[in-house]
Amino acid sequence: MPVFIINRLFQALGVILVMSVLVFVGLYLIGDPTSMLVSPEATEIERQALRKALGLDQSIWLQYLTFLGNAAQGDFGRSFLTGQPALQLIIERMPATVELVIVAMTFSVVGVPLGILAGLRPKAPSSKAIMTGSILGFSLPNFWIGLMLIMLFAVYLGVLPASARGETVNVGPVAFSILTIDGWQHLALPALTLGLAKAALMIRVTRAATREVLPMDYIKFARAKGLRPSRILNVHLLKNILIPIITVAGLEFGQAIAFAVVTESVFSWPGMGKLLIDSIITLDRPVVVAYLIMMVFFLVILNLVVDILYMAIDPSAREKVRD
């Protein structure tokens, strides 16, 4: 087990390094940021001076090493637009995104009972309806679902706001919208948009796991023993389908943070996803690079944690690593 963790840690470090090279070199090729920063009338000498000040006159590898050294100390450069440190901009926006994703993921848990239902009686019309609904849920693009929800709840019914975050309450340095009614009203539509797709996925994962567990001997034995169906369901079935569900939920948490990019743009939710899109469109390179490196870091760590948790819950996976 420790060998496995150390091994994975090194792999994770490797992935982060490779991705940082890709992101940095990729974005380096986009263009010359000096053309964005100086006025069109600036002379060549002024441009040269700026390039030198930003370190753009050095070779790309030297620039990368400088960048890596600074990044290791949490310095990703300053936004070309606002002049604030890029990392600070992202961290300021992070609570809004995390709050949205957590509410959405909590909502997506409704997919589990629906999935069990569909798995227990695969031929029933209700199960077919659930499965067809789940196809819609995860195949329709996120922004489309958001748009339809806005059309229904904000424009047609006029009961919920279509954009922005609403009233927040500060707990320490972090603002929460889940503590006010206005905040919940603003949170409802974006969280539903993000959560619907995740719920659809939960349905499919739960159904597949249920179908896999049902024919197992321990379920048959429990039935033969004459246990109540509710006990078989809640103990024997649920415990065993939890492993894939937790794995997928963990990985989907990362996906949801990334997909919040779309949801946040639709609802003008002031999270870090909206910041990324705005920065890509305005070519604010330090913010884009900082966001991506942070995201790579976060996703790699998340994968690692899910893998380790998986080891902890599932004894058979532990056996495999030991061999």
Binding site: V23, L27, L29, L276, L292
Partner: peptide, 20 residues
Amino acid sequence: DIQLSFPAILVALVMLSVLG
């Protein structure tokens, strides 16, 4: 594996911000 561990939307966004 490495590529699939990153969300498709992020990979596409990075590619497009690089390619234009």
